[in-house]
Amino acid sequence: MARHARPWFAVALALAAGFASAEERANYFNDPFLQLTSGIASCPVPEGPLITETQRREQAHGRIERGTSCFQAGRCRLPNAYLYDKEIIPRVKKAVDFAANFADTSVWAEGQRRWVWLKGCVRSQEQSDALERLVRSIDDVENVINQLTIVPTP
């Protein structure tokens, strides 16, 4: 009888491991994630700043250290670089809206410690480059990570 229980035990262990790895993900650090444009219906919504509780614990110390080192080095006027993000991302949206030449894109912006991740879809490399330059020019933006995908006009 014990020989017949082994396969079921292995299945139960595999299921338990699957449930453990399916840990709930959330935006634990409240990093801003905002849709800037919505002109390409086929563009998949990129994943925002979702992490597991385990990842949150692993990242907490590094985020504190990176956030305050900016202020300590005299590169930030606020005591933590992450404090800028809630101001920067709405300014990115405003700049993109004002530029008015990105209506045929679907772009999201995510902010962490004065860095802006551009995610989503644009129609050309030129449009991607222009969007990156625009965001780099915004006050308090330290870096731009361009993760845009080119989806040519059909």
Rank of each mutant, 00 (worst) to 15 (best):
E142H: 05
P7D: 14
E142T: 05
C121E: 01
L34G: 03
H61A: 10
P152V: 06
W8D: 12
Y82V: 04
V151H: 02
D31Q: 11
R75V: 04
T149M: 03
S21T: 15
P79E: 09
S21D: 13
N146G: 09
V151F: 07
N30D: 13
V92C: 08
C43D: 02
C70N: 05
R3V: 15
A95C: 13
R56G: 11
V151D: 03
R77M: 14
L131R: 01
S21P: 02
A22V: 12
R114A: 05
A41L: 04
A100E: 15
L83A: 10
Q147P: 00
A109W: 03
G62A: 12
E110N: 03
G111S: 07
R123M: 04
L134Y: 00
I150R: 06
D140F: 09
V122H: 00
V116G: 02
E47R: 09
V92H: 11
I88C: 07
G67Y: 01
A16Y: 07
A12E: 12
V122M: 01
R77F: 12
A26T: 14
N101R: 13
G74C: 09
R57F: 15
I64P: 04
E23V: 13
H61E: 13
A2M: 14
E87G: 14
P32E: 10
R91T: 06
P32F: 09
L36I: 12
G74V: 02
T68G: 09
V11D: 09
F98V: 09
F29P: 02
G39K: 04
N80S: 06
P46R: 04
G111T: 05
I138P: 01
S38M: 08
D140L: 11
Y82C: 02
L34Y: 06
P152A: 10
I88Y: 12
Y82G: 02
A60H: 10
G48N: 04
L34V: 15
E87C: 14
V122K: 00
D104T: 12
F71N: 09
S128R: 00
E58I: 13
E142D: 09
R63P: 04
V122Y: 00
A22N: 13
Q59R: 15
C76G: 02
G18W: 13
R77T: 14
W108N: 01
P154W: 12
T68H: 08
Q112V: 02
R113D: 11
H4C: 09
R66A: 12
V92E: 11
P152F: 05
A16M: 06
C76R: 02
W108P: 01
E58W: 12
L34F: 08
A17D: 14
Q127V: 06
L148H: 03
V11W: 07
G18Y: 12
R133E: 03
I40D: 06
A73R: 07
A12C: 11
A103L: 14
E23Q: 15
P152T: 08
A60P: 10
G74F: 09
A73S: 11
I138C: 00
R133S: 01
N146V: 05
Y28V: 13
V135F: 00
